[in-house]
Amino acid sequence: MNLSPDQSIMFEAWGIPINATILYTWVVMAFLTGAAILITRNLRPDVPPNRWRTMLEVIVQGIQSQIEDVAGRRDRHLLYFAGTLFLFVAVSNLLLVIPGFEPPTASLSTTTALALSVLIAVPLFGITRRGLGGYLKTYLEPSFIMLPFNIISEFSRGISLAIRLYGNIMSGAVIAAILLGVAPFFFPVVMDVLGLLTGLIQAYIFAILATVYISSATATPNTTEKENP
């Protein structure tokens, strides 16, 4: 049994081995892109929404509502970023029910890449909203002595995100394989249901944590004072 999709070589392209992580990452991206194009191809005021468009609107509004609850404001760019993270992780995990599919989120390289995107997004969002000087000043709060600790804390967030997501997905796959070996006729249905539930929870937690980190970097002193009179 392969513990990571990195170990599964699917085929070679121009002499370069393509493993399951790369292949299924592109499969998920193609699925999300294709679904978005198909659902929104008739997105006009004079065209009544169908069930797929309604479902997509419910998902987007749900993500937007969660972001507003965490950040305390509407942020269109944060919606794009956190929403993309949620959909990618959720779809990657949900497609686990398809026989032969290996979720790319079970690879440490994928979860590390997602965590790095959050690590890069935090200062970008912070600088955009507070300015370069205002954002760098946060590393000196509450005192300049805290500078190295604040920097370490920033990097540890990304590491914890990657390890948390990878560990949960991989452990779920290992437990499923053990249970299938013990009782192959009963546990597949149960593990499929648990896999769907765990996949959604992990996607939600990952997106919420990314939103919390970005919101803390973009919060201004005036906003904090208003929220905490």
Rank of each mutant, 00 (worst) to 15 (best):
S160E: 00
L196E: 01
S160G: 05
V182W: 06
S107L: 08
A173N: 07
F186L: 11
T105F: 08
S92L: 11
A115T: 02
I178W: 07
F155R: 00
L161T: 03
L94K: 04
I175V: 15
P188L: 13
T111N: 02
E154H: 13
Y139M: 08
P123R: 04
F186T: 15
T128W: 09
G131C: 00
K137D: 13
N150H: 07
V174D: 01
T128I: 07
P104Q: 07
I175E: 00
V91G: 02
A106H: 06
P184I: 09
E102Y: 09
L147T: 08
G195E: 01
F101V: 15
T138C: 08
I159T: 07
L196G: 15
F187V: 08
F88T: 04
S171N: 14
I120Y: 11
F88I: 14
S117A: 14
G134W: 01
M191V: 13
N93H: 15
F155A: 06
A115M: 02
L136Q: 03
A183S: 09
M146E: 11
A90E: 04
N168D: 06
G181E: 00
L119D: 01
V89L: 04
L124Q: 05
V174C: 05
A183T: 13
F185A: 12
V182F: 10
L194H: 03
Y139D: 00
R130C: 01
D192N: 14
L196Q: 04
Y135P: 00
N150E: 04
V174M: 13
V118R: 04
R157A: 07
L108T: 12
A115R: 01
A90T: 04
L194D: 03
F187A: 10
R130Q: 02
F144G: 11
L179C: 05
A177W: 10
S143Q: 04
L108N: 06
V190W: 09
G134H: 02
V97L: 11
Y166S: 10
N93M: 11
I151R: 00
M146Q: 12
L108I: 15
G172I: 10
N93E: 12
M191S: 06
Y135C: 00
F187W: 12
V118K: 03
L94E: 08
T111K: 02
F88L: 09
L180W: 05
N168P: 03
G100F: 14
A177I: 10
G131R: 00
I169T: 13
I159V: 15
